[in-house]
């Protein structure tokens, strides 16, 4: 299968998944008890005011035509507008665009923190397999998987901001303020990647080409870092890539602790406000990111490993 037809197929099934998510969310929002008009209008709204809001949200139309107008807003790039006063408020797309840089910055920083710690830990554990170093590294990564962010993030704030004052705390901005949240958000991924690196390295170090490299007298460092590591990294890259999608959207706990704006927080707020257009728009963007990241990972994998391209 050529790269082109592979891409087309993946894009097609990706779009299908995004459409599915949209329909699911749309149906779900309309099944939910609780009237969005009540929330926006408040208790003392007149019938006229209520009707105005209903018209603005399109709730006076039938469900299918509401869905069609949502798709229209996807196509014109606004993702819909916020009621009751669409002129005074930014479009949904603008609201998402406002928080997206924060989310992206946290995701990249978290990924960086995870990789910087995970690779040495995993490689060391694999090379010194069965020794106390291996045990220590394995225990560290297991703890990283098990530690709840709800405990780790507040403790980080308490230790490094409240007590020591080394890093800026919640609500502050700037590069330094990214350190603690990035570390907190990356811990789990770090642990997963370290485990993956270890098991992948152990497997590769047993391969024939590694024995060949050793037999021809290459220094051990070159064998480990050039011959073994390059091949061992493939599954690690896959996991890292796939997890990037969840870093982008699933950092909701960390955003909450550090009072940071972000996609996850925006969605949480919108769900609680029953702000339908924002919920739909945010879900669409998140699902889109997921699908896109998955396709990119598959492509990268195919480029890195020619055996897969032929399959």
């Amino acid at each position: 299968m050529s790269i082109g037809s592979f891409l087309l197929r993946r894009l097609g099934s990706g779009l299908l998944a995004i459409l599915g998510v949209s329909i699911l969310v749309f149906a779900f929002l309309h099944l939910v008890p609780g009237d969005p008009v009540d929330h926006l209008a408040g208790g003392e709204a007149t019938v006229e005011q209520r009707q105005k809001i209903e018209k603005c949200m399109g709730l006076d139309q039938s469900m299918p035509s509401q869905f069609v107008s949502f798709l229209g807003h996807v196509l014109d790039g606004t993702l819909g507008h916020q009621c009751p006063d669409p002129k005074g408020k930014p479009t949904v797309a603008a609201r998402i665009a406002l928080v997206f840089p924060h989310t992206a910055a946290l995701a990249f920083a978290g990924m960086l923190a995870a990789i910087v710690f995970a690779l040495p830990l995993g490689i060391l554990a694999a090379v010194r397999r069965g020794t106390w170093i291996d045990t220590l590294a394995t225990t560290t990564s297991l703890s990283g998987i098990a530690i709840p962010q709800m405990m780790f993030a507040p403790l980080l704030v308490f230790l490094f901001f409240v007590t020591l004052g080394w890093f800026p705390g919640p609500t502050e901005t700037g590069w330094m303020a990214l350190v603690l949240p990035a570390f907190a958000v990356g811990t789990h991924l770090m642990a997963m990647l370290a485990r993956m690196t270890r098991s992948s390295m152990v497997e590769v170090l047993g391969e024939d080409y590694v024995r060949t490299a050793r037999a021809k007298g290459l220094p051990e460092g070159r064998v480990v870092f050039v011959h073994a590591l390059r091949n061992a990294l493939l599954p690690v890259i896959t996991i890292a890539g796939l997890q990037f999608g969840s870093l982008l959207s699933g950092a909701i706990i960390i955003e909450n602790v550090f009072a940071r704006p972000g996609l996850g927080t925006t969605l949480l707020e919108a769900i609680l406000e029953r702000n339908y257009p924002v919920v739909q728009g945010t879900v669409l963007v998140i699902a889109g990111i997921y699908v896109l990241v998955n396709i990119l990972v598959d492509l990268a994998y195919g480029i890195a490993d020619p055996r897969i391209r032929r399959a």
Binding site: A17, V21, F28, G264, L267, L268, V283, I286, Y290
Partner: peptide, 15 residues
């Protein structure tokens, strides 16, 4: 696929 193309916790929150 649809359920997996979306972070689980956000779906849990929505429900």
């Amino acid at each position: 696929d649809v359920l997996m193309s979306f972070p689980g916790i956000l779906l849990n929150i929505a429900i």
